[in-house]
Amino acid sequence: MSDVNARPGQARRDRAKATRCKIIDTAYRLFCENGYPSTTMDAIAAAADVAVQTVYYVFRTKAALLREVIESAAAGEYDPPPVGQRSWMKQALASPDGHRALALTIEHGVDIYARVAPLTATIHTAAASDPDIDVFWQGVTQSRRAGMNQLIAGLAGHGHLRPGLDPQRATDIMVVLCSHETFLGLTGDAGWSVPEYKAWLYETLSHQLLKAKERDAQVTEDLSYHGLLQIP
């Protein structure tokens, strides 16, 4: 195919992608502001300045659109790869340094919670009324635990876990402390800043999970590990 013929096709794909991204951004704003029941496909179309038929053509259902909104918000990008395939998670899983593995996971994992936090009420309402969203969110929860279990397995494999700590128990601790619920409780109800939560989570998990001889000498210094987890 010549460049002349290829360019119009690419231009159409670029326009379609731009329209899709605009719908996702608009839906994110409306879901956050108005909740799930009140945010109709018609309202999203009107706010995005596209035909409602376009919204249905691209996303089919409101549940499917909300799923894409959540995934894009969580990743901070459109069409994101699974968490396990993102560069920071690959680095955390491959790192022989337990402190760096924790720092990377907390720095980027907490950013996911921060981006999804405004959607929390919408997600809970949608999950209670829409089986598709309920199944999707259960899958998110299961995937989060599986990822943390994989990280804990890496820490155990490198001999970083504190003596007597079963990897399953270590996973339980991390799942509860590094969660949407704990993030919202401390940054929302208690008024902590996101950097404060990151620093507390890093220090707490270091003490809960890592060997004393490794954690005590480094945890204070590592609160600013590679510029991460630094309270202003």
Results as ranks from 00 to 15, higher is better:
L93T: 09
G159E: 12
M89T: 10
Q138V: 03
G109D: 13
G9D: 10
A64S: 15
Q218T: 12
E68A: 14
A94S: 14
Q208H: 03
I173Y: 11
D97M: 07
K211W: 00
P80K: 09
Y225M: 08
D79I: 12
P96Q: 10
T187Q: 09
P131V: 06
C32F: 00
A73Q: 10
A190R: 15
G157M: 12
R100I: 01
A47E: 15
G227K: 07
A46T: 14
A146S: 10
Q85I: 01
A117L: 00
A11F: 07
M1S: 13
R67N: 04
D222E: 12
H160Q: 10
A146Y: 06
A48N: 08
L155T: 09
R145Q: 11
A117I: 02
I133H: 05
P167W: 02
D111G: 03
E68V: 09
L161S: 11
I70T: 06
R13P: 02
P82H: 10
E33G: 00
D216G: 00
I173H: 06
T220E: 13
I23W: 01
L201H: 07
G154N: 14
H226R: 11
W88A: 08
K90A: 15
L165E: 08
E221W: 04
A46M: 12
G35M: 06
C32M: 01
A46I: 13
T204C: 07
E203C: 07
A92K: 10
D222H: 13
H108N: 15
I152D: 11
V83K: 15
A126F: 01
V52F: 02
A47S: 15
I106D: 09
S72V: 13
D172Y: 05
L65V: 06
A16Q: 15
E214I: 00
G159K: 12
A64I: 03
L228M: 14
K62V: 03
D130W: 01
R13A: 14
G154T: 14
E214G: 03
A27N: 06
A75D: 05
S129D: 10
A128D: 13
H108V: 01
H124K: 10
A199N: 13
G109I: 05
G147Q: 08
L184F: 00
V116T: 10
A128I: 06
V52N: 06
G76E: 10
Q218D: 07
E203H: 08
L155V: 14
L102T: 02
L65Y: 05
D97E: 11
A121E: 10
Q53L: 06
M174Y: 05
A146W: 03
K213Q: 11
A94W: 02
Q85D: 15
P80W: 05
F59D: 08
T40A: 04
K211Y: 03
L161C: 09
I23H: 00
D25H: 07
A18C: 02
A217D: 14
R20W: 01
